[in-house]
């Protein structure tokens, strides 16, 4: 209390070490999208929605890169890794987007993974009812997490809790998933109690956000699948493969 330096459980420090270099990810995805658009003929340019899909696809690549180089996950066999990622890819995308807005903290604008800002009202004016509903659910979650003062240490813990889901069946190494869940929950509780002693229910409130992230991500998948059936989503990419994986 009284300005003591923040204390991080050792495991939280280890999780932070797995975080990607944000500016590098930003530059990589922005460059990719610019090249992708420039390489297309005048009449094949991607529209806004198509660019957003490509951006989500590239963000998925960076999420897979983060996972496979992360503590615990890198110990798993590929089949287990695939099952875990196929289960939670849309939640990790949702959590990534929501956390970026929590940190961005600029009412009325959305910060993209490329570092660009988009006017929220502009998107809302172009989007249909379903996408608007989805965006407003995400923004409600952003507000809740902002008032909870979610920080990066807690964010990385939530990412691992989402990745190592106990809902995934037929894993060869389910024991590791259980152990990671236990360790991360303990580390998160320890961190929150030490660094936010005045927010006695913060740990519980953070965990209560996980089903909300799941609900938003499933709504996003439904929307994306509907748009895919309409032929509005660029195909032959990781995003489409993951979308189909759960339906297979």
């Amino acid at each position: 209390a009284g300005g003591s330096p923040p204390t991080f459980p050792h495991l939280v420090v280890e999780l932070l070490k797995c975080e990607p270099d944000e500016p590098q990810v930003q530059a990589k995805i922005l460059t990719y999208l610019q090249q992708e658009q420039a390489s297309r003929g005048k009449h094949e340019k991607l529209n806004t929605f198509g660019l957003m899909c490509k951006m989500a696809d590239q963000t998925l690549f960076s999420i897979v890169e983060w996972a496979r180089s992360s503590i615990f996950f890198r110990e798993l066999k590929v089949d287990d890794q695939m099952k875990l990622l196929q289960n939670c890819w849309s939640e990790l995308l949702t959590l990534d987007h929501v956390f970026r807005q929590v940190m961005h903290a600029k009412e009325g604008s959305i910060l993209l993974v490329t570092g660009q800002q988009v006017d929220y009202a502009l998107i809302a004016s172009q989007a249909g009812a379903t996408l608007n509903n989805l965006l407003s659910h995400a923004q409600e979650l952003v507000s809740k997490l902002r008032s909870l003062q979610l920080d990066q240490r807690e964010f990385v813990c939530l990412k691992f809790l989402v990745l190592f889901s106990l809902d995934v069946k037929n894993l060869e190494n389910f024991h590791l998933v259980e152990s990671v869940q236990e360790q991360i929950n303990a580390a998160l509780l320890d961190y929150v109690m030490c660094n936010y002693p005045q927010q006695t229910d913060k740990f519980g409130q953070l965990l209560l956000r996980l089903p909300e992230i799941r609900a938003i991500s499933l709504q996003a998948e439904e929307y994306l699948y509907y748009k895919h059936l309409n032929g509005d989503v660029p195909c032959n990419n990781l995003l489409i493969e993951m979308l189909h994986a759960k339906r297979a």
């Binding site: 590929v78 196929q86 493969e241 993951m242 994986a245």
Partner: peptide, 18 residues
Amino acid sequence: EPEEPSLLKKLLLAPANS
């Protein structure tokens, strides 16, 4: 018909620095 190779599997099996 051979199944389309999984992009996710390729990514997970790729060498670390690729």
